[in-house]
Simulated assay, not measured.
Amino acid sequence: MNASTETGPRPRDWDIRPATETDWPAIWGILEPVVRAGETFTWDRDTTVDQARERWSTQAPGQTFVAVGRGDLDGVVLGTGELHANQGGGGSHVANAGYMVHPDHGGKGVARGLCAYSLDAARAAGFRAMQFNAVVESNVRAVAAWQSLGFEVLATIPEAFNHPQLGYVGLHLMYRKL
């Protein structure tokens, strides 16, 4: 699936595709340092590999996906994302997603590309909107990326996230219609 036409062309140095079973070691290699750092996700910093796999592995109509390098980085998993219904029952028409990028590949637009991919995938799966429940307000690069893709901050819950260096910071609730 290509990035949405409203978000521009797909970058030339990587592709995004659904994850396969063989991608898990690379996905864990991305998730583990992000989770251990405790700066951008609300996961317990001591999350085990099994807990992470259960939480990150998503079934239809959602999916788990990866950004895979081309050229010099051919086949290298640069980042990963997962898409799922935000709630069950009457709330199941709103998607939720998460993205993590390997620290060596941050700042190159990979997370933005993963988000654009998930917007297309969510739309194709019949979701009507996407909601992010907990975007750490100090993660300014992510907030700017999501806003550039049409998300708006609906609310900020003050001091809802205990950042390991900054102390208590807010969590944004972000939303966009598909």
Results as ranks from 00 to 15, higher is better:
154 L>A: 10
125 A>R: 09
118 S>D: 07
111 A>L: 01
150 G>F: 01
148 S>W: 01
149 L>Q: 03
122 A>N: 04
137 E>Y: 03
155 A>C: 05
129 A>M: 04
113 G>K: 03
111 A>G: 14
162 N>R: 15
139 N>S: 09
126 G>M: 10
115 C>I: 13
141 R>K: 15
158 P>C: 05
123 R>Q: 13
113 G>S: 15
154 L>D: 08
157 I>N: 13
163 H>V: 10
161 F>Y: 09
163 H>Q: 12
161 F>I: 03
115 C>T: 13
130 M>G: 07
126 G>F: 04
125 A>S: 12
145 A>K: 03
143 V>I: 07
160 A>G: 13
154 L>K: 10
113 G>T: 14
130 M>N: 11
136 V>D: 04
138 S>T: 15
127 F>E: 03
159 E>L: 10
123 R>A: 15
125 A>Y: 01
143 V>P: 02
140 V>Y: 04
145 A>H: 05
160 A>Y: 08
161 F>M: 07
117 Y>W: 12
129 A>Q: 02
162 N>L: 15
116 A>N: 07
115 C>G: 10
127 F>N: 00
131 Q>A: 12
156 T>N: 05
140 V>H: 11
146 W>Q: 05
142 A>N: 06
118 S>C: 12
136 V>L: 08
134 A>D: 15
163 H>W: 12
111 A>R: 00
150 G>A: 05
151 F>Q: 02
159 E>I: 06
